[in-house]
């Protein structure tokens, strides 16, 4: 579904070239949930933005076997537009692509308890509600591939777990192919079928940790979950 080979990214600033990504080779299968984990500042966000098509200056190959309109991205800062209401933010992707059917948005808002905020503005929402709205906006366009950059960063533990459960449910139910970038070990162990561990900057693949038994909310309390988390702790630089 997503094939990335020999990906290398250099940023040129004021005449100096800085290597951000040394080399990353990753494949994501259809319906798979792949998590990319790495220390802060290792180039995870650049990696995801490059895959999402927001950065053109790279070498190597990125192939996505799906129409671009079927790829949704959730940014780390969410990027909700403060001048649009909750509803208008939720339907942004549909409006941009002239997709008329908004029933999916209605259903998602309802499911994530956001319907009562329809006419409100993003500044009136809590951190968790903003993240949920980001999720609704991304899923409204009925994507096949969902790319997420630290989608639950800076949330309290309780809200984060609740939203991880929602992401897991939606992934299974909507048959999504997911690629999630995080620096949170437990998030990676809970949401990743395979977990790619990146080195410190410039990023390259250090290790790929399989995590097959995931997929149920109860996995969080299982022995395998702790084993995966432990393995990630050891693998991380």
């Amino acid at each position: 579904m997503i094939n990335i080979s020999k990906l290398r990214v250099d940023f040129i600033s004021k005449g100096h070239s800085k290597k951000i990504i040394e080399r990353v080779d990753v494949n994501v299968d259809r319906g798979e949930s792949l998590v990319v984990i790495g220390p802060n500042g290792c180039g995870k966000t650049t990696f995801l933005h490059t895959v999402a098509g927001l950065n053109d200056s790279y070498s190597g190959e990125i192939t996505i076997e799906e129409d671009r309109s079927k790829v949704a991205l959730i940014l780390q800062e969410i990027g909700l537009l403060p001048w649009k209401t909750v509803w208008k933010n939720a339907t942004l992707g549909l409006d941009l692509n002239n997709m008329g059917d908004k029933s999916r948005t209605e259903e998602l808002l309802d499911r994530l308890d956001l319907t009562k905020y329809r006419g409100d503005y993003p500044t009136q929402l809590s951190g968790g509600e903003k993240r949920k709205l980001g999720l609704v906006r991304a899923l409204s366009v009925d994507p096949k591939i969902l790319l997420m950059d630290e989608p639950l960063v800076s949330l309290d533990e309780f809200t984060r777990e609740k939203l991880q459960n929602i992401i897991l449910e939606l992934w299974k139910e909507k048959d999504l192919t997911m690629m999630l970038v995080t620096h949170d070990i437990e998030e990676a162990a809970f949401l990743g079928e395979r977990i790619v561990v990146l080195t410190s900057s410039p990023a390259s693949v250090k290790e790929v940790v399989p995590n097959e038994p995931m997929g149920e909310v109860g996995f969080r309390r299982s022995e395998n979950f702790y084993k995966t988390a432990q393995r990630l702790r050891e693998a991380l630089p």
């Binding site: 927001l54 671009r68 949704a72 991205l73 940014l75 969410i78 990027g79 941009l96």
Partner: peptide, 12 residues
């Protein structure tokens, strides 16, 4: 930039 990226990444 995050607002611009939000629209661009959604196909704007």
């Amino acid at each position: 930039n995050r607002h611009v990226k939000a629209v661009e990444s959604a196909g704007g």
